[in-house]
């Protein structure tokens, strides 16, 4: 199977237009409802390695875009599946039933940094941040400079007062 075969398969199975960006790179956008079906379809096609999951925050449109980067060890190319979810109540089905623990840890990270709830993921415990009570820190509307100033700097402190000028 090569990139073009997969693009045809996408058209046949799901009626979506996948795009070949360059050699060994295919990008496809799907609805969030179709994500699990697309995931299972790709896993069966040999995309066994979930390289990464990422979230991009589009503040103006009010959406989160999730990207799943999948690599096939047998056919040696990468498919990126993109899907959009609402930013206000971000929730999506977990892909752990398909990719197992490797998906689990990526989802756990994104839950902490972006506040996305992955339904079906049993372990979304905090990963990197300790005793964090602020908003998810990687959101575009989180002003970390302001947060740090308010929480960690002291106006009375000789060495830190210039941050408040």
């Amino acid at each position: 199977m090569n990139e073009l075969d997969l693009i045809d398969d996408f058209d046949l199975e799901f009626g979506v237009n996948a795009e070949k960006q360059r050699d060994r790179r295919v990008w496809v956008t799907v609805d969030r409802e179709a994500l699990m079906d697309v995931g299972r379809f790709l896993f069966d096609k040999g995309f066994e390695h979930l390289s990464a999951i990422s979230v991009t925050d589009y503040l103006d449109e009010g959406v989160y875009e999730l990207t799943y980067h999948l690599w096939s060890y047998s056919d040696n190319f990468l498919v990126t599946v993109k899907t959009k979810i609402s930013r206000n109540k971000p929730a999506i089905d977990s892909v752990t039933p398909i990719w197992g623990e490797s998906a689990q840890i990526h989802e756990r990270e994104l839950h902490e940094l972006f506040g996305v709830t992955f339904e079906g993921n049993t372990d979304l415990a905090p990963l990197f941040l300790e005793d964090w009570d602020g908003p998810p820190p990687f959101r575009k509307d989180f002003d970390w400079r302001k947060y740090v100033k308010e929480n960690y700097y002291d106006k009375e402190n000789e060495r830190e007062k210039h941050y408040f000028i």
């Binding site: 990464a52 990422s54 689990q104 840890i105 990526h106």
Partner: peptide, 16 residues
């Protein structure tokens, strides 16, 4: 860059 996601190998090796 609008978004830069870094995928390190150790996240997978050190946790799962």
């Amino acid at each position: 860059p609008y978004r830069c996601k870094i995928r390190g190998p150790s996240l997978l090796h050190m946790v799962p």
